[in-house]
């Protein structure tokens, strides 16, 4: 018997898990990124090394942890290190291939805000703040961002730059538009390579670094994605339709979440 149809959230998680076919080491926060990485280990990449900010390297959780510091992560890890060691010895030198990050706001060059909505001194909404994100995004090989696709999240202008993505982007010749640029700032990793929303996958244009819609999730349309984006969203010439979740992926995800 086929499983019940996938929800949008399930599809988003499975699309994220599929991106982890070749990475050796992934850095993850809680929520969808964690679920996606655990799922990837279970269904197609058993050698994938999961690294959590709490200092657990090579954690092998069988359940989705509520927090990055759940006991199971430390009990199953290859190594458990202190926070200073995690950032100084593991994140900063670029030993981690891919990092999954979320954010409250993202702009067209994949810069991220997780600090504040409104003015910093008189905030409308005070968010948790940076956590590890700024240095994770500069130190890791690449960043995959997972966010809901709506105009509150995909905005023309961030209220606060917590984490640098592709800065102000490049012009059509590939020249940085300003000093707000990864290379000029000395950031070492490649920065965001994909933004996975609940409608689509956006990827930075190789020349301008502006996010371009390249893939649609099953059931989503270009019009929906345009409507839900706070800037005039660029669409790739050939938009790829993402293959719907297989029964195997969906069943594995549901088993994992139910544990």
């Amino acid at each position: 018997m086929s499983p019940e149809p996938a929800t949008v959230g399930e599809i988003q998680t499975i699309v994220a898990a599929r991106r982890l076919r070749t990475a050796k080491v992934v850095f993850i926060g809680v929520g969808k990124p964690s679920t996606a990485a655990i799922l990837a280990r279970e269904i197609h990449h058993p050698e994938l090394v999961l690294v959590y900010e709490s200092g657990t390297i090579g954690a092998k959780p069988r359940r989705v942890p509520l927090s990055i510091g759940d006991g199971e992560l430390a009990e199953t890890a290859d190594a458990v290190v202190s926070v200073p060691e995690m950032f100084a010895y593991w994140v900063q030198p670029g030993r981690i291939d891919v990092a999954f990050l979320g954010a409250a706001q993202i702009d067209r060059h994949a810069n991220l805000n997780s600090t504040v909505i409104g003015d910093y001194d008189t905030p409308r909404t005070r968010l948790p703040g940076a956590g590890g994100a700024p240095e994770i995004a500069s130190g890791c090989g690449e960043v995959v961002v997972i966010v809901p696709h709506d105009r509150r999240t995909l905005v023309e202008r961030l209220d606060f730059v917590t984490t640098v993505g592709h800065g102000d982007g490049h012009d059509e010749h590939g020249t940085p538009r300003s000093d707000f640029d990864r290379q000029a700032l000395g950031l070492r990793g490649r920065g965001p390579t994909a933004v996975i929303t609940d409608l689509a996958v956006l990827e930075p244009d190789p020349v301008t670094r502006e996010l371009v819609l390249t893939q649609l999730l099953p059931g989503a349309t270009v019009e929906q994605a345009r409507e839900a984006t706070g800037w005039p969203l660029r669409i790739a010439d050939a938009v790829e339709a993402i293959h719907p979740p297989t029964d195997h992926e969906l069943t594995a995800l549901r088993e994992l979440v139910a544990r």
């Binding site: 200073p84 600090t115 940076a130 700024p134 240095e135």
Partner: peptide, 20 residues
């Protein structure tokens, strides 16, 4: 780590380009 080492400051690749 700087406090534990009795150094006046710590050093890292960080914060660059952020509003922090």
């Amino acid at each position: 780590a700087a406090g534990a080492s009795d150094l006046p400051f710590g050093v890292l690749r960080g914060y660059a380009g952020t509003d922090l």
